[in-house]
Design a protein around this nucleic acid. Sequence first.
DNA 1: GTAGTCCGATTGTCCGGACATACGCATTGA
DNA 2: TCAATGCGTATGTCCGGACAATCGGACTAC
Lengths: 254, 254
Amino acid sequence: MPKPDVDPTVSLDLSVDRSSPVPLYFQLSQQLEAAIEHGNLTPGSLLGNEIELAARLGLSRPTVRQAIQSLVDKGLLVRRRGVGTQVVHSQVKRPLELSSLYDDLEAAGQRPATKVLVNTVLPASAAVAAALGVPEGGDVHRVERLRLAHGEPMAYLVNHLPTGLLDLGTEQLEATGLYRLMRSAGITLHSARQSIGARSATAAEAERLAEAEGAPLLTMQRTTFDDTGRAVEFGDHIYRPTRYSFEFQLLVRP
Amino acid sequence: MPKPDVDPTVSLDLSVDRSSPVPLYFQLSQQLEAAIEHGNLTPGSLLGNEIELAARLGLSRPTVRQAIQSLVDKGLLVRRRGVGTQVVHSQVKRPLELSSLYDDLEAAGQRPATKVLVNTVLPASAAVAAALGVPEGGDVHRVERLRLAHGEPMAYLVNHLPTGLLDLGTEQLEATGLYRLMRSAGITLHSARQSIGARSATAAEAERLAEAEGAPLLTMQRTTFDDTGRAVEFGDHIYRPTRYSFEFQLLVRP
DNA sequence: GTAGTCCGATTGTCCGGACATACGCATTGA
DNA sequence: TCAATGCGTATGTCCGGACAATCGGACTAC
């Protein structure tokens, strides 16, 4: 007598298209992720063993494992040797990516706007030169922007970039975020070093952000590197804490 | 005539111990990571192809790939199809893990101290109940701690935990961090949801942290989940921004 | 001289199998 | 009654091979 079927993936209508250029493991991981997202795979449920899943889909076990592993890395699944793979009791949304404020606001349904206050080239100060790894006094771009949401000022952004990487049109800067511009210029972002702190607003800062002098501000400094290790951007940002806070999810790596 | 040898890994004295219980791919990735750390593999240098490396070590290509992949995930290496694998021009230290303030301070050479102000069990407020996923009014632990470094107050930490997970001895809380206690109680931390902001200090907060009333404070709220998805901790922390800021590195996931 | 094409090199994907290891549970033993 | 043992099951590790996709440079054609 066959044991009762409790594998939730059998009722999931999983399938792969071998003629597609999309890798098989990726097709599978996307379908599993969608099933988790839509509640077809309920949190806590066991996934049924890899061997059988591979056989049912006509895939090899390494391919199935690769699909599952990618979801484990995303924090959606947990594997236990001798037990099985089960869906994490979610709460997981997105595990913190290198996001631009512009994209964040847009995704949140706030309509972001940007006002470019300064867009020029000038000699690098000592701090900027050190952060970007360029000679002090050498030319760098300097961009100062005011970011608004629903017409209200939300952040004041100062960025320095090495020259020669991309053209910074003021119109483009007002239409989208800096990261999107860099990506479309062929720069592949790799990592960033961030520092988040707080301090009181100076008189000038207070006026720009429509806050009172001495009001608490949220500060963020960030240096971004591309995959060759070059620093491609150094940002010094201040945010109004009543309007913005940093929200993110992070995973414990085992 | 053989082509000139430019593979930097040949002079690296890599070797694996097949009698060790440590997985082969892990042995290899650790040796490569150490070589990068010590400068024996210079940033930007190409790694020589996987096939040859596998042959030289007496390993299969999948095993070598697994080792390399783990370092790619850490941000230390970059792969390019048709080109090779090269060492990232570093700056990478650690890609943001779920760290406790206590461990951070200890690692930074500051000698952390903890003063437990409150350690009790009480009915959950609505906010705490919602964060922990327990019924409102049910029992929860409440811990209030003052964290000091070099005798100076640095942060004020309020934590709520479900009852029944672990015993919270005041002595233990003063000797180490909360996360270390949870891990040693057999709880496997999985993910956390964080929110970082800023606001002005109330009179009571100012006194506890030796700041002026209205001084800017850095705030962090965090809910931590174990691998079954249960919320195991809810923290509401305030930091003195003149003494502490959040520093971390993050990777762009491709 | 310039643009397009071909080709070698290298990683990306996938397969089918083998054995090791750890967990949970039932059985056995004191 | 309770602890120790054994067993089934699932994931973890590893192998050797095969073909595809892409990059960069050399070569060729215009």
